[in-house]
Every structure is written in structure tokens, then in C-alpha cells.
Design a protein around this nucleic acid. Structure first.
Lengths: 201, 201
DNA sequence: TATGTTCTGGAACGAGAGGTCAACAACTCC
DNA sequence: GGAGTTGTTGACCTCTCGTTCCAGAACATA
């Protein structure tokens, strides 16, 4: 019934995501989107609603991918800390798709919060999920004697999450990936148990 | 010679700073500024140039104050780590002027980098200076046996700087100051030397 | 082929953007 | 007081913003 879509909705959302990611919400105009997406204005509005809704959809797509990456990253048989470390490397590498634009989520939080409740909710959800995932793995690390006794698993999870947000800011100021890697090295050096005992319980 | 200014340039810059801080660069219009600053458009342009220059001046004012806070925060006779910890508390408290808007510098980096070289330069300068100040104090901490041997002073400085940027993002997502304090507690718990020896050298 | 429905692309819209300007106001100096 | 200079104001400019609308294109069904 009716004329079919001539474009792949998800592919279009990906391109919108890259544009918003690169330029930010306010600095991206509908003209930019028309040009980048290769669609008429009418088609965009019909398919995605207004500019803000399109942005939220694009951000949701970005966060959804991050969620997936997180959910499928852990093998509960191997030590947790090295896996966490590898996850961060992968997370940051995934963001290099948009070369020096940092993290779409961090950028959006910084630009639009606390005034944009829709974006706030979506971001909060992903951050909470990430923190919980970290906490589970860190608790596993603690039980395995990997984690420094100076910190609890939930606190370490929150600390790591916070640090990663900070890394995304620092990457925009100094894009040298070696700096990022070095910073993660330091963090994990501190998190590691200096006297790795046998499993405690 | 000529008619004198009827306004205090620095007071006006402060108000512009608060507005840009609250709304971001792109979302703040000249109309907003005219209304907030209580000046005619012409006066603003005559005194500060265009919108972008005004923004850079406002950001410079913000960063200048942070620089001052940092420069005058350390007593080389007392232990370094607690002083660093107090500094962070003061930094975050200073930002509470603009209740839930996070950090003007972090917001600006996220919104405008990597496309705005002027903002990038100004922000880089302050971050470098902060990192160096941290490093000096952490080196003092290391020599005094305060710092964990698991990390060097420069690395700890970079780690702390990164963490604070992250805290500014997290604060926008969850404004509860207790979370921020707890995160700093965790970080310093890890940085502290678990076996505080006597001064080594 | 005729009809109904959906999608497409671009013209058109009002609002508001950032920026300019000219007339007037407020001072200093002669 | 007159001349010269600078600050102030708000009307005004052009351009671009986000959004709407409509005529035509592309399908399914009959």
C-alpha cells in the first residue's frame, strides 16, 4: 500500500549520528542534514519527526551499540581486570570512527544537560547499565584477589566510569592515543592488588 | 576624551560567562545576551567584538579564575595529598555558582572542539598548567612517601586531571554532590601509599 | 487502466539569527 | 560655549533557521 521507502532508515540514522556527533546538536542545521543524508526535508520530517527527535534517535543508536559492546564483552572464566582493560580499549577504538570528535554521548551530555530531559534519560540509562556491568566484573575481580583491597567493587565501577568520561574530554584536547592508553595503564595499575593473594572466598 | 563607559566591563563579562555556561555557545543568542547583560547590541559589539570573541573572553575569565585558585592552593610544608583533595573540593564548589551546569570549560571543550582552535588553545593552556601543578605536588607526595609506589607523579597528575573532567560530566548526569565526593574519596584511597614509609629521599 | 495511498523533493513560510549603522548623548579640551 | 571624540541605543539589514505544504512520483489493489 503506497509508495515504498527509497532509503534504509537505519543507514540514514547512522549518517545523522555521525553528523550530530561531529558538529553537535545546535551547530547542525537541517540544511546540513538534508545535504548529508541525501533526502528531501519532507522525507526527513515524515520519517523521523523534527530535528530533536532525529537527534534522540541518532543518540539512541549510538548508545545502543555501546550497550551491546558492553553486554557481550565478558568471559566469566578469565580474570576480570584484563577484560575490563580490553573493553576500554575497544570502546575508545570504536569512537575513532568519528576521528577527533570524542564520544557522542559525552558531547551530548555536556551540550544539552541539564535542560534536555529526553537526552538526560537516555544517557542516564546507558551509564547506569555500564556502571552495573563494571561492578559485576569488579566484584568478580575482588573475589579473585585481582582488585586492590583499598577500594570496593561498586566504588571502583563508578570511578572507572567517571574516568572514561574524562578520557573522552581529554581526547578532544589531546588526540594522541598514547596519552589515553597511558592513562588507562595508570588507572589499572592502581586498581590491581599489589599483593595478589589467592582467592579469598 | 569622549563619553565614558557606563558599565563595568568585567562585571558584564561575568554575566556573559554565566549565560554561556548555562546555555552553551550555540544555544545562546545575541538577543539572550542583550537581555541578560542589559546593554544594547551596538555596545556589546563595540566593547567585545562579535559573539565568538565575547565567548572566548568569558571562557578566559572562567579559566583565569581556575588558574588562580590552583596557583594559590598549596603550602609546601604540609602533606600534598590532602591539599590536593581539598583543592578538588574547592574547584567543584566554585562551579556550583552555576548550579547544575557542570564546568564551563568541559562544556566548551565538548561542544566546540576540535573545530574551534581559539577555544582549544585557551583550554589546553589551562589544562597543561593544572597538570603541571598537580605533578609538582604529587612528586612532593611521592618523596614524602604519601603516594602509592604503583604510580609515578606525572602519571598520577594526568590521571587526576582526567578524572576531574569526568566528574564534571557525571555531575551533569547525577548532580548529587555525595556521588562526586565519594568518587574523589575512592581515587585518593587508591593513590595513597598503602604502606606509608618514612620519607625516602 | 483507474483509484487510493504513501513517499519524495523542493518551494515557501514566519521567526529569529548575527551583525551594522546613524542619530543622539556624554564627556574633554580649547 | 563650540569642537572633537567616544559610548549608547534601537531600528534595520540580510541570511539562515526549523518547519510546513503541495504537486508529482511510485507503488498495491481492483
Amino acid at each position: 500500500m503506497g509508495r515504498p521507502r527509497t532509503f534504509d532508515e537505519e543507514a540514514i540514522l547512522d549518517r545523522a549520528m555521525l553528523l550530530f556527533w561531529r558538529k553537535g546538536y545546535e551547530a547542525t542545521s537541517m540544511n546540513d542534514l538534508v545535504e548529508e543524508l541525501g533526502l528531501g526535508r519532507g522525507s526527513i520530517y515524515a520519517a523521523f519527526g523534527d530535528k530533536h527527535r532525529l537527534f534522540v534517535l541518532a543518540l539512541g543508536r549510538y548508545l545502543g551499540r555501546q550497550d551491546d559492546l558492553l553486554a557481550s564483552s565478558f568471559d566469566d572464566l578469565r580474570p576480570a581486570l584484563p577484560q575490563l582493560r580490553e573493553l576500554f580499549e575497544r570502546l575508545l577504538q570504536a569512537d575513532s570512527v568519528c576521528s577527533e570528535s570524542g564520544c557522542f554521548s559525552v558531547n551530548s551530555i555536556a551540550e544539552l544537560l541539564p535542560n534536555d530531559e529526553e537526552v538526560a534519560d537516555r544517557a542516564r540509562r546507558s551509564l547506569r547499565k555500564a556502571e552495573q556491568t563494571f561492578a559485576v566484573q569488579l566484584e568478580r575481580a575482588r573475589r579473585g584477589g585481582e582488585l586492590s583491597p583499598a577500594i570496593g567493587a561498586p566504588e571502583a565501577a563508578h570511578l572507572l566510569l567517571t574516568l572514561v568520561q574524562g578520557l573522552q574530554i581529554m581526547r578532544k584536547v589531546d588526540p594522541d592515543p598514547a596519552r589515553t592508553t597511558a592513562c588507562l595503564d595508570s588507572a589499572f595499575a592502581l586498581l590491581r592488588n599489589p599483593v595478589p593473594a589467592l582467592a579469598l572466598s
